[in-house]
């Protein structure tokens, strides 16, 4: 496997194919967002076309996307911060005091289909007249991000030796003081991982916002879905909208690659 010129050539070829297969559709999307609708229909202009930013103008100015971007940012930010505030101490307790059953309850959330929560939420929240507001949206996104934070942070705290906390307590810190001054600063990479993933999952969330958001609180994925409601699809505009939602998250993933990968594969090798 390690030697052989033939294998090396095969490997290079296969890897090139993999990269092309993964990236070409995304490049195609961005390219289409820079074309006029006439050029999108013209196969001869697949790659050679004169780029235009008109689609982005349509999306940002006429279709009100600036509001949706702010909504998405706000919901993702609020749900991430709240999930970290609740999830990090909980994960600490569950890891240090081995609260297996409690952890299991929180992790069940990964298994339950979102729709089965949406039905009762919708019932209760519409009776409270909360549907369409930010509160419900943030709460619903926390349903995804809180278990994620607990899951990632439990793994992180499990791997963090207790000796440092103990020596801090010998030096006069209370247990909570030791958690705050010693464990938390040491956990920054774990918290970054959990936070970035929680943000990405909230930003990408579609189903909860589809039901629970209103005209004023609509997030980007729902706005994109609504884009196709009209008679003929404005492909250029649609691709510009899709690019607006996808590219920021891809840039974050690019910059924080290490954290994103470790979060996505958290606990995978423990079996």
């Amino acid at each position: 496997m390690r030697g052989g010129t033939a294998y090396k050539a095969f490997r290079v070829g296969a890897l090139v194919l993999v990269v092309l297969g993964l990236l070409t559709p995304l490049i195609w999307m961005v390219a289409a967002s820079l074309k006029t609708n006439v050029d999108i229909y013209d196969a001869s202009k697949a790659l050679l076309f004169s780029p235009t930013v008109d689609n982005y103008k349509t999306v940002l100015e006429q279709a009100n996307y600036v509001t949706f971007i702010i909504n998405s940012l706000w919901v993702a930010f609020a749900s991430t911060v709240l999930s970290l505030l609740l999830g990090v101490p909980a994960a600490y307790s569950m890891s240090r005091f081995t609260m297996k059953r409690s952890a299991l309850v929180v992790l069940m959330a990964r298994v339950i289909p979102g729709v089965s929560l949406l039905v009762p939420w919708f019932y209760v929240f519409s009776n409270l007249r909360l549907v369409g507001g930010f509160t419900v949206l943030v709460l619903s996104h926390m349903f995804v991000s809180l278990p994620l934070v607990v899951y990632i942070m439990m793994g992180y705290f499990d791997g963090l030796p207790t000796e440092l906390e103990e020596s801090g307590q010998v030096d006069g810190l209370t247990p909570i003081g030791a958690f705050r001054r010693i464990t938390l600063p040491l956990s920054t990479p774990g918290i970054a991982t959990a936070g970035i993933l929680a943000f990405i999952f909230s930003w990408n969330n579609f189903m909860f916002a589809l039901v629970l958001s209103g005209a004023k609180t609509k997030t980007l994925p729902v706005a994109i879905f609504d884009f196709v409601g009209y008679a003929a699809i404005d492909w250029g505009g649609l691709m510009a909208a899709a690019t607006v939602v996808t590219v920021p998250i891809m840039v974050i993933a690019l910059l924080a690659q290490k954290y994103v990968v470790s979060g996505l594969t958290a606990g995978a090798t423990k079996g």
Partner: peptide
């Protein structure tokens, strides 16, 4: 490094946007 970046991109892309992208393709 670059291959790993390419692998990460579809994963983090917004599924609704991905659906729309493939609708065009």
């Amino acid at each position: 490094k670059w291959v790993r970046v390419a692998i990460l991109m579809p994963l983090v892309a917004t599924p609704v946007a991905v659906g729309m992208m493939w609708r065009l393709i």
